[in-house]
Simulated assay, not measured.
Amino acid sequence: MKNSVMGVVSAVALLAVGVAQAGPLVDVTFKNLGREQAVLKIVTANESSTYQVANPKPREKVEANTSTLFRVQRIISPDVNAAMVRYTMGSKTCAFGTTFQMRMMPGGIKQPQWTKTATPSGGATCAATITSTAADYSWKVEFSMK
């Protein structure tokens, strides 16, 4: 009985540590500003892992002039998080990314850093904007494509 209780206590402690290690939450909005449907296309391992941990999942098809919202929170470290997604419209493609990293500065000072990228190909117009950051380091980013 004692071993069973210790096992349960150990499992709960490990789960609590895992929750404590989660990075800051990112809310991602993808806006299709084009005239045709945008289709999710997973190419890289980072895009695949984003899809796997997103809640809800990014929509696989986003109609013209609509958007989709998803959230990503990775349980790697409290000091990092990232979301990567790629959408296509015919021959146009936009690869988007956003990251958070707590950087260690000289003197042991920690400094938060958020990034965003939008990489077009095939004549696409892509934009990425960080729309807000919070005291808990969570952030919101908007990706748009046309």
Rank of each mutant, 00 (worst) to 15 (best):
Y87G: 07
I75G: 04
C94T: 08
G97W: 04
M84D: 11
T93P: 00
R86Q: 14
R103F: 00
M102A: 05
A82N: 06
M105W: 05
A95H: 08
R71G: 01
M105Y: 06
R59P: 01
P56T: 13
V85Q: 05
V53H: 06
N55T: 15
T68S: 08
K61A: 13
R74H: 13
I76S: 10
V80I: 14
V80D: 01
A54E: 12
F100K: 03
V53F: 09
G107L: 09
Q101H: 09
F100Q: 01
K57A: 14
P58V: 14
D79G: 06
P106N: 05
T93S: 11
K92S: 06
I76E: 10
V85W: 01
T93H: 01
A64H: 08
M104K: 13
P78M: 04
K61L: 08
V85R: 03
T68Q: 02
R71K: 15
R71F: 11
G90N: 07
T50N: 07
A54H: 13
G108Y: 04
E60H: 08
P106T: 04
T88Q: 12
N55R: 15
Y51D: 14
V72M: 10
F70W: 14
I76Q: 10
S67L: 09
Q73K: 10
Q52L: 13
E60R: 14
G107W: 07
S67R: 12
M102I: 00
M104L: 15
P106M: 09
V72L: 12
M89T: 08
R103P: 00
A82V: 04
Q73D: 07
P58T: 13
I109C: 00
T88P: 00
M102C: 01
L69G: 01
E60K: 14
T93Q: 10
G97K: 04
K57S: 12
F100M: 03
R71M: 12
M84E: 12
S77A: 04
T99Y: 02
F96Q: 02
N65Y: 10
T93I: 09
M105Q: 15
P78C: 05
I109V: 15
S77G: 01
V85I: 15
P106S: 07
E60L: 09
Y51K: 12
P58Y: 13
R103T: 03
T88G: 00
D79N: 12
V62D: 03
M84I: 02
T99P: 01
M104S: 13
F100G: 01
